[in-house]
């Protein structure tokens, strides 16, 4: 094997060391389990073919962006297949990840409901920040925008979550108070 080939393989392996597991988590948060392996494969193939463009200092956001687009293309293909066989169904949007509905009985109903109240772009922003633990400049790479825009949108999204939780808690406290009043009524 030529030296250049060996170098390329070594470089790919070094990128894989960094991104292999995070990419599985990223996809696991946004895709059905059955699709994760296939989209991971697609993503790794793109990374292999475009290895020259993978940032050497911080490859992960770039690779998340690859996965994002591979997932979007995967979903489009799947949706088109469904349409072709006349089974048009409401499929999750490209960036829609797993957010359980509060009715599922999670322990964090208030926060979950607040998340569900966000629109999908804001929710994706929150996921990248809280779950992928990315900084605004890294999120900007994934979403193909500017760090400033990310910072502003992120702050607004967090404010919406806090407001929603406050509102839910106030409503809950009001109901509690009302209930107590009735219990102690003679």
């Amino acid at each position: 094997m030529a030296t250049a080939d060996l170098d390329r393989r070594a470089r790919f392996e070094s990128v894989v060391d960094v991104v292999y597991e995070p990419l599985q988590r990223y996809l696991g948060r946004r895709a059905d389990a059955a699709d994760v392996s296939e989209v991971l494969n697609d993503s790794l193939l793109v990374i292999w073919r475009r290895l020259e463009h993978v940032p050497s200092d911080d490859p992960l956001p770039w690779c998340y962006s690859v996965a994002k687009h591979c997932l979007a293309n995967h979903r489009r293909s799947a949706q088109r297949r469904l349409q072709l066989v006349g089974r048009v169904a409401a499929q999750p949007g490209m960036s829609e990840g797993v957010v359980r509905h509060p009715a599922d009985g999670g322990d964090h109903d208030t926060l979950e409901l607040a998340l569900l109240e966000l629109d999908e772009p804001d929710r994706e922003l929150i996921r990248l920040w809280a779950w992928e633990q990315l900084a605004p400049r890294e999120i900007a790479i994934v979403l193909d925008t500017t760090p400033n825009a990310v910072s502003l949108r992120l702050k607004r999204a967090k404010d919406k979550i806090i407001s929603s939780m406050d509102r839910q808690n106030s409503a809950f406290a009001g109901q509690e108070g009302f209930g107590h009043g009735r219990e102690h009524r003679p």
Partner: peptide, 18 residues
Amino acid sequence: LREQLGRLDPMHPGVPVE
């Protein structure tokens, strides 16, 4: 907030991946 959101993460670090 980040910590609270982390508890909702379906792929939190405790979930094994390959």
